[in-house]
Amino acid sequence: MGILEVQNVNKSFGGLKALHNVNLDIEEGKIHAIIGPNGAGKSTLLNCFVGKLTPDTGTVMFDGHSLLGIKPYEINQLGVSRVFQTPEIFSELSVWENTLIPCFAKRDGSFTLNALSRVSDNKDMAEKAEKMLVDVDLINKKDMLASSMSRGDKRRLEMAMCLSQNPKLLLLDEPTAGMARADTESTIELLKSIQKKLKITMAIIEHDMGVVFSLAQKISVLAQGTVIVEDIPENIKGHPKVKEAYLGEAQVEGNMRDD
């Protein structure tokens, strides 16, 4: 029984079938990686989890709630946070404010008209935000404007923003794309330590196999809109179907058209 259960999800854009009878079961407390060649439908699948897209058919159940037909902010309030491929942060605000906003959103819900209290009077929120910034090693940059940080720092900030809400499920869309080697290593360490400490369930889309195999406890391989294999990392490495899917990408398109 997983925390996120995806059953028979189909999604097409015009004539293009992006997702075809996708079944996925993400277990609580595990890091689950979704890999696959370009255009396999990984991001489409993730978008179906956060309310950005609605599947044509099928069900997506999270912690006993259906995620279909409800708004992104409602899904977040249920406990799903997402880190984007290109960091989505409040670039015109300071790093500090960036971290505070999710804390307030978690405490006050989707709308509160607290126009007369002072931000600086909410000591509990400040403590939470400070702890989070220490965890991602951004505390000495807290007064910087978010837009003036490096790409790696922006990603870490976004991760801190998501984690400060104590999500039940954290979705990560290529969390290390475009990062320097050292940053990638520290991100892996960060995610591992968080998983150990907070037992947050994570679903990761990733291209970097090094990252995938050092993090994931379970891997689903997506190719041409369907899950072709779902297994533990050791069994994925030499799996013939996986090899075929990745080789198919390198070969001429002819193979794919047979489908």
């Binding site: 956060v50 708004k71 992104p72 902010y73 977040n76 309030q77 946070s81 997402r82 989505e88 942060i89 409040f90 670039s91 015109e92 605000l93 404010e97 505070l100 906003i101 999710p102 307030f104 959103a105 978690k106 006050d108 819900g109 989707s110 709308f111 509160t112 008209l113 607290n114 126009a115 007369l116 209290s117 002072r118 931000v119 600086s120 909410n122 923003m161 809400q165």
Partner: peptide, 25 residues
Amino acid sequence: RSPFGMMLRAVKTNQNRLNYTGINT
């Protein structure tokens, strides 16, 4: 200076992130 004002400034910079942060803008 209020949390409400901070949310309003967040609306100006990134509504998308705000939606995925659980805020109904």
